[in-house]
Write a protein that binds this DNA or RNA. Structure first.
Length: 256
DNA sequence: ATGGTCGGTAACCGA
C-alpha cells in the first residue's frame, strides 16, 4: 500500500505543529506540500526528520514554495521546470521507490484581465510539456498539488456566482484537462464521493462553516498506476483546527 | 491597509 497526499499548508512555519500532528496520525508514505512561504535555509528539515520523513524542497521567501516529504529516501530531485526560467518556486520532482512524484503549486491568476492570469496559462503550457517527457521516461508518475483550477462545476459550491472568474474559467479548465489528456487521471473522481466535496475554503465569510469551497487540490496518477488506486478522499480534520490552513489535505491510496 | 480573513512583511501584497 502506498499512501500519498497533497496539502497546501499556507506557511509551513505557522502550520508545523499541525503538520506534525497530521503526519503522525495519517502516516502517509509521500506528501506534496505547497505554499511553504519561507526560504530554503528556514525549512524545518530536522523537525520532519524526527517525525520519520526525508524532505526535498524549493523554498522562496514570503511566497510560494513546494516540498516533497517521504519515508523512503527521495532520489534524483529536480526543482522548477527545466528550460523555463521562473523566479517563483512552484515545482519540485523526485523519485521515491518506483514512483516519480511531483509537487506543484499553480499560479492563482488573480483575475482574468491580470498579467498574472496570462502567466498562469503560460505556466500550464510549460508544465504540460515537462510532464509529456516525464510520462515517457517513468512508468509510474504521480502529480499532486494546488492546481488552482476547479475542473468542473460540481467542484464549485456556487457555479453561477463563480462563472468566468479565476480558478474556473474555460481557459484554465482546458489547461487542466490537457494535463489529463497526456495520460493522467484525477484519482479523486475514480470513486463515489460526497456531494459538495471541496479542498479550499476562503477564510472570509465563514467559508468553511458554510462549505463555500472549491476543489482545486488534486492527485493525478498516470493511467497504469491509477488502475491500482484503491481510494481517494479529502481529509477535512485539519481544516477544523484552530488557525488552520485554508486548504485541506487530499489523500490517495495505491495498491502497489 | 478602497468588504469580509489570513499569511508574510514591515510597503500592503497575495490568496
Amino acid at each position: 500500500m502506498l499512501k500519498v497526499a497533497t496539502w497546501n499548508v499556507n506557511s509551513i512555519r505557522t502550520r508545523l505543529s499541525q503538520l506534525a500532528e497530521w503526519l503522525n496520525k495519517e502516516q502517509p508514505d509521500i506528501v506534496g506540500l505547497q505554499e511553504l512561504k519561507l526560504s530554503d535555509h528556514e525549512f524545518p528539515n530536522e523537525a520532519l526528520n524526527e517525525l520519520g520523513y526525508k524532505s526535498v524542497y524549493l523554498g522562496q521567501k514570503s511566497y510560494n514554495g513546494v516540498a516533497i516529504l517521504s519515508k523512503e529516501d527521495p532520489k534524483e530531485t529536480i526543482t522548477g521546470i527545466p528550460g523555463f526560467e521562473d523566479s517563483q518556486a512552484r515545482v519540485i520532482a523526485t523519485t521515491v521507490g518506483a514512483v516519480r512524484f511531483l509537487s506543484i503549486y499553480a499560479p492563482n491568476g488573480q483575475a482574468l484581465d491580470s498579467d498574472k492570469y496570462q502567466y498562469k496559462l503560460e505556466w500550464f503550457t510549460h508544465l504540460k510539456n515537462y510532464l509529456t517527457g516525464i510520462l515517457i521516461e517513468y512508468p509510474n508518475t504521480i502529480v499532486v498539488g494546488d492546481f488552482n483550477v476547479a475542473p468542473e462545476d460540481r467542484d464549485v459550491h456556487n457555479p453561477a456566482a463563480w462563472r468566468d472568474s479565476v480558478l474556473v474559467s474555460p481557459a484554465e479548465r482546458t489547461a487542466f484537462f490537457q494535463l489529463l489528456e497526456l495520460g493522467l487521471i484525477d484519482t479523486f473522481r475514480l470513486f463515489d464521493q460526497a456531494h459538495a466535496a471541496y479542498t479550499w475554503w476562503d477564510y472570509r465569510n465563514l467559508g468553511f462553516e458554510r462549505n463555500h469551497g472549491l476543489r482545486i487540490d488534486h492527485i493525478l496518477a498516470n493511467t497504469n498506476l491509477a488502475l491500482s488506486c484503491g481510494h481517494s478522499w479529502v481529509d477535512l480534520a485539519p481544516r477544523k483546527n484552530e488557525r488552520p490552513s485554508d486548504h485541506a489535505p487530499v489523500v490517495s491510496e495505491f495498491y502497489i
